[in-house]
C-alpha cells in the first residue's frame, strides 16, 4: 500500500494505542453483553419434550449461540459507532489524517474482534461449567458437553473471522450513513427490504448463507478475508474525501 506514507503508519500506531485506552468502555460493554447472554442462555435454554407410550423425555438444550449472537451484534454496533462524527472528531484533536484514523480503527476492530471471539467461546465454556455444577450430573448428556481443545480453537478462529466480517460490514455501513443525513433512514430501510425479499423469495438470506454454509475452513477464511478487504476499502474511499466538521 504505497499510497500510505510511513508517517501515516506511525500516526496510526499512536492512534491505535490511544484508542485502546480511550475506548476501553467497548471491552466492558462486551463483557456485560456476554453476561446478559449468559443469563439468558442459562435461564432460557430450549426445551423439547417427546412423549411416547409411558415415556416422557424432556431435553433441555444449552448452547453458546446466544453468547456468540450477542457478541456479533455488539461488534456491529461498535464498528458502526467508530465511524460516527464524535469518534472521528476525537481523532482530529491530535495528529491524524483520514487514512491514519481509518487504519487505527481497523487495528482496533481487529483487537475487539479477537477479544470478542476468545471471550465468547470461553463464556460458552463457563456456561457448561455452570450447568455442570447446577444440574444433577446423571442428567447431563455427554456427547457435546466437553469441548475439545481443537474444537475450542476452531471456534475461536471462526468466531474471530465472523466478528471481523460483521465489524467490517458495520464499519462500511456506518461510513455510508455518515455521507448524508438521509442515508441514516435510507440504508437501514434498504437493508431491511433486502432481508425480507431474500427471506420471502428464498427462505434464507443468500449473502448470509454464502458464509454460513461454507464447510471448509480454508474457503471460509478466503471468503471472509476478501469481503473484509472490500468493505474496509470501501469505507476508506468514502471517508478519505470527507471534511472534518469539528
Amino acid at each position: 500500500m504505497s499510497f500510505i506514507e510511513v508517517n501515516e503508519w506511525k500516526a496510526a500506531k499512536k492512534q491505535f494505542f490511544y484508542k485502546l485506552t480511550a475506548y476501553k468502555g467497548f471491552f466492558i460493554s462486551l463483557f456485560i453483553a456476554q453476561f446478559v447472554a449468559l443469563v439468558f442462555s442459562y435461564g432460557g435454554g430450549m426445551h423439547t419434550s417427546i412423549s411416547v407410550d409411558l415415556v416422557s423425555l424432556t431435553v433441555s438444550f444449552y448452547s453458546g449461540d446466544m453468547l456468540f449472537g450477542f457478541t456479533l451484534i455488539w461488534a456491529f454496533i461498535v464498528a458502526a459507532k467508530l465511524t460516527s462524527e464524535n469518534y472521528r472528531n476525537n481523532d482530529f484533536s491530535f495528529v491524524s489524517t483520514r487514512i491514519s484514523s481509518n487504519l487505527s480503527n481497523i487495528a482496533l476492530i481487529a483487537t475487539l474482534s479477537f477479544v470478542g471471539s476468545v471471550t465468547s467461546l470461553m463464556a460458552g465454556v463457563l456456561l457448561r461449567v455452570i450447568v455442570y455444577f447446577t444440574t444433577d450430573i446423571g442428567m447431563i448428556y455427554g456427547k457435546n458437553y466437553l469441548l475439545s481443545p481443537p474444537e475450542l480453537l476452531t471456534g475461536i478462529y471462526a468466531a474471530f473471522l465472523y466478528l471481523a466480517l460483521v465489524c467490517a460490514a458495520g464499519y462500511l455501513i456506518g461510513a455510508v450513513v455518515q455521507m448524508h443525513k438521509v442515508l441514516i433512514v435510507l440504508v437501514p430501510a434498504v437493508l431491511f427490504g433486502l432481508v425480507s425479499y431474500e427471506l420471502t423469495k428464498f427462505g434464507t438470506i443468500r449473502w448470509v448463507e454464502y458464509f454460513t454454509s461454507e464447510g471448509s475452513l480454508l474457503m471460509f477464511t478466503l471468503k471472509v478475508i476478501s469481503a473484509v478487504l472490500i468493505f474496509f476499502a470501501g469505507a476508506l474511499v468514502l471517508s478519505n474525501r470527507l471534511e472534518v466538521r469539528r
Partner: peptide, 15 residues
C-alpha cells in the same frame, strides 16, 4: 426423564 444436552456452537459445527 429429563436430560440436559449441549449443542455444539454454530461457529464450530459449521466446520
Amino acid at each position: 426423564m429429563r436430560i440436559v444436552a449441549f449443542q455444539t456452537d454454530f461457529e464450530i459445527s459449521q466446520f
